[in-house]
Nucleic acid binder design. Structure first.
Length: 423
RNA sequence: AGAGGGGUGUCCGAGUGGUUUAAGGAGCACGCUUGGAAAGCGUGUGUAGGUCUCAAGCUUACCGAGGGUUCGAAUCCCUUCCCCUCUACCA
């Protein structure tokens, strides 16, 4: 959530930045926000001065009662009683104005960083770098959805039976590969100074709001019927919300947390040929890194996180590229996002395997996550990234490493899998 | 899940309708004292909003959360969340 003082002080750039993110009617909405804020302030002042009068009168009555002047007190009481209704009305009006204002403010996306390229779609993203080279594959190379059947390691039919589409069952070496990747990614993060967290994977509404999933993306999450709890779409939600309503001691910054969780996404209406197999699932495992910083350090941290993710891909020997997302393709809450895409040999295309973002104060403002610097409380910057999401990594490893001996496990993973080939 | 007891500031803790403008203590910060330290003494010590060029000041809200009663609520009532004890159940 953007802050009103910032919008007021930077109207021109706010409008231009919103347009860069292809937010419709930016100028009108900014003007409307400011008008509503003016109105809110006026109503608030009205209500507060009425309250002040009523508080003073109540105090006077108290004093009169105490000194035994009952009749004077009774008179005063009758007088003050008449104020009540109008005070209530004013308070309600002020509250309604504030809610209206917040409801509108919450619809504004975060402003993009100056380095974010102009553009509308994924085609406009900027390729920052490409690492490695195309894998050499046999002529009869198969896509991963055939390989998993050939080696009987991931079973969609069984998942269909017990749950539904998009909930695969991992079996044998497929299950062990999952576990190996999870441990490998966690260990690498811990080596890089992250602190491991195992959060709940159901979250309440406040948490959904704190990181920006609610009220907007309600349809993306599964909800429990009785309690109204949401299954997390990413560990970012619980791990970042640990710091909701917290004033972090400056000495504790930066905070670097990592957690592995399953992630649940409804992905309503997005099924088709390009989301076959492991490319898009309703449930998948992901290791998420989350950092909290003082504002001046957050962009250095973003680069560090990007390098960490790249290090993982390099150790797995996957051909990858890094994209700087354009304004139109970025997430709602992000100020700058790097996507890492791994090459999928048999599908002949790039698969997004990580997304690393700096949210600046956007989430912190919703979370009320602050720190104190020189006695002043300021909003922290939050960042997060996948390090990494499993299914597409598995797809890439299977496709890129297939050969006559079966699928070769990347060397860095062998200590974790305990086997060198899937065959 | 049933019965009972609780939730007050950074922490402990008093407070069952009106100088509570949240007592008292601890902690922390600064000062005095001291050769130095401790002790002692003094002062200060939250968050958010509004007003204000800034600061100060003034003001509103905040005693788990949300509503209500009242001229006035930490205190009374309702709803809800969380914690503790016992019972039940369970991995």
């Amino acid at each position: 959530m953007l802050t009103l003082p910032f919008i007021r002080a930077n109207q021109e750039t706010t409008i231009a930045d919103l347009q860069k993110k292809h937010f419709a009617n930016a100028a009108e909405i900014v003007a409307q926000l400011i008008a509503q804020d003016d109105q809110r302030k006026a109503l608030l002042q009205q209500a507060e001065s009425a309250l002040e009068k009523s508080n003073a009168a109540a105090k006077e009555i108290g004093a009169l009662m105490q000194s035994g002047q009952k009749e004077l007190a009774e008179g005063k009481r009758a007088e003050t009683a008449a104020l009540k209704a109008s005070i209530k009305e004013m308070e309600e009006a002020a509250k309604a104005a504030e809610k209206e204002l917040t409801d509108l403010l919450v619809t504004l996306p975060n402003l993009p960083h100056s380095s974010v390229p102009q553009g509308k779609t994924a085609d406009d993203n900027e390729v920052v770098l490409t690492w490695g080279s195309l894998p050499e594959l046999p002529a009869d190379a198969q896509p991963h959805w055939d390989l998993i059947k050939k080696y009987d390691i991931i079973d969609f039919d069984l998942g269909n039976k017990i749950t539904g589409a998009g909930f695969p069952v991992y079996k044998g070496k497929g299950a062990r590969l999952q576990r190996a990747l999870i441990n490998f990614f966690l260990d690498e993060a811990i080596k890089a100074g992250y602190y491991e967290i195992q959060p709940p994977i159901l979250i309440n509404e406040e948490s959904g709001f704190g990181t920006g999933q609610l009220p907007d993306k309600e349809g993306q999450m599964y909800v429990t019927k009785e309690e109204g709890l949401f299954l997390i779409p990413t560990a970012e939600v619980p791990i970042t919300n640990l710091y909701r309503d917290v004033i972090v001691n400056e000495k504790e910054l930066p905070i670097k947390n990592v957690g592995h969780t399953p992630c649940f996404r409804r992905e309503a209406g997005s099924w088709g040929a390009h989301v076959r197999g492991l490319n898009r699932l309703h449930q998948f495992d992901k290791i998420e890194i989350v950092q909290i910083h003082k504002p001046e350090n957050s962009y250095a941290a973003l680069e560090e996180m990007s390098l960490h993710v790249q290090g993982l891909l390099q150790k797995l020997g996957l051909h990858y590229r890094v994209l700087r997302l354009c304004g139109g393709d970025m997430g709602f809450a992000s100020a700058l996002t790097y996507d890492m895409e791994a090459w999928s040999g048999a599908q002949n295309r790039w698969l997004e395997v990580s997304s690393v973002s700096n949210f600046e104060t956007f989430q912190a403002n919703r979370l009320k996550l602050r720190t104190k610097i020189d006695g002043k409380s300021i909003l922290c910057h939050t960042l997060n990234g996948s390090a990494l999401a499993l299914p597409r990594i598995v797809a890439s490893i299977l496709e890129n490493n297939q050969g006559p001996d079966g699928i070769k496990i990347p060397e860095a993973l062998v200590p974790y899998t305990g086997f060198t080939h899937i065959n």
